[in-house]
């Protein structure tokens, strides 16, 4: 899912008071010591992604860059890219040290330039993961996935983990679609609506029989509309969106960045203000490479990941 779209989903969920179980963060908040600014150190450059509103994201990113600067003791600069490809290219040329990306972009960046996973975002579900759903209207009389044979479905976008590959994988695992992308064998029509909300609306308005998008897309419908739809099936869990680091970023610095960001505590109002603007997440937990093992196989089926076995090797190397 696109970064801004995902932010929108999470904020919508927040506005609608979606449930907020305790986050799976272990232990009390570690104490952080402020560090004096080392003017000689090279600045830490962070890429933030925004498909829709780069100016807003640039403003919103100031909270976390200032926070990091305070506790890392080095200049921290944020910049906005309009898509994941640009962020990865910036990392390849060492113009970006860190980037906030989705799992698909990370896996490709890991394969192609050796990017490392640092931290997973924690969502309002309290988990650093999410899944996709096959959404249908309740009044359509659809009871199981097989009932969608010969019908239509809207996905969000061709290159979208939660808005295409994961929900598509639901049909593959049910033996209804081949593992590779072949149109027309099960569905009468597959659409790419241009976003999660557009896909959900297409299903709700009756333009399609189903929508395959993120679990959080339900929050894009109004309350009374939500009662009229249901999830026919859910996908495997995907690790959450994450912060990744370029190869070669020093180990000590990497560990400090993790410590400082994991210490952000939603129950602390100052920290909450930072997190709310940082894609609206609840906090961070450390990411492991093999968190991506299962979805790497899904992405590999569509040619995005070439060597899914790279993600089944235990902890990420420093």
């Amino acid at each position: 899912m696109k970064r801004t779209a995902f932010l929108s989903l999470l904020l919508t969920a927040a506005a609608l008071s979606l449930p907020l179980p305790a986050a799976e963060k272990a232990g009390p908040k570690p104490k952080l010591a402020e560090r004096p600014l080392n003017a000689k150190a090279a600045p830490l450059n962070i890429a933030f992604i925004s498909y829709a509103n780069p100016q807003q994201v640039a403003r919103d990113s100031e909270g976390v860059t200032k926070y990091l600067q305070k506790y890392l003791g080095m200049a921290v600069k944020g910049f906005v890219t309009l898509d994941y490809g640009s962020a990865i290219e910036a990392m390849r040329s060492e113009k970006a040290d860190l980037a906030f990306v989705d799992p698909l972009a990370f896996m490709m960046a890991h394969e192609q330039i050796g990017a490392r996973p640092l931290l997973l975002e924690i969502y309002r579900s309290g988990k650093p993961s999410y899944h996709s759903c096959i959404w249908v209207r309740k009044d359509r009389g659809l009871k199981q996935l097989a009932d969608l044979r010969g019908k239509s479905i809207a996905f969000a976008d061709q290159v979208d983990m939660s808005g295409h590959l994961m929900p598509r994988d639901v049909f593959v695992r049910a033996g209804l679609l081949p593992a590779r992308r072949i149109e027309g064998e099960f569905f009468k029509q597959i659409y790419f609506a241009g976003g999660d909300e557009q896909a959900m609306r297409a299903m709700f308005n009756g333009f399609t029989d189903a929508a395959g998008v993120s679990q959080y897309s339900l929050g894009l419908l109004r309350g009374e509309e939500r009662d009229q739809v249901m999830a026919l099936a859910t996908s495997i869990e995907s690790p959450a969106h994450l912060l990744m680091a370029r190869p070669g970023l020093g180990e000590e610095l990497t560990q400090r960045i993790k410590r400082v960001l994991v210490a952000l505590d939603k129950t602390n109002s100052a920290d909450k203000a930072i997190l709310d603007k940082l894609y609206g997440v609840q906090g961070y937990v450390e990411a492991q490479l093999d968190d991506f093992a299962e979805i790497a196989k899904v992405a590999a089926a569509y040619g995005f990941v070439k060597k899914p076995e790279m993600f089944s090797v235990g902890k990420a190397k420093p």
């Binding site: 994941y84 490809g85 990865i88 698909l104 972009a105 490709m108 960046a109 192609q112 809207a154 976008d157 061709q158 290159v159 029509q189 597959i190 659409y191 790419f192 609506a193 241009g194 557009q198 297409a202 308005n205 009756g206 333009f207 399609t208 569509y302 040619g303 995005f304």
Partner: peptide, 25 residues
């Protein structure tokens, strides 16, 4: 007509295609 129009819009967004990501897709 509403349904036909809605599906035409979906056809349009689908027809846009995608540049993919890092050369894939």
């Amino acid at each position: 007509a509403y349904r036909a129009q809605g599906q035409a819009w979906l056809q349009m967004t689908s027809a846009l295609g995608t540049p993919g990501l890092l050369g894939a897709g």
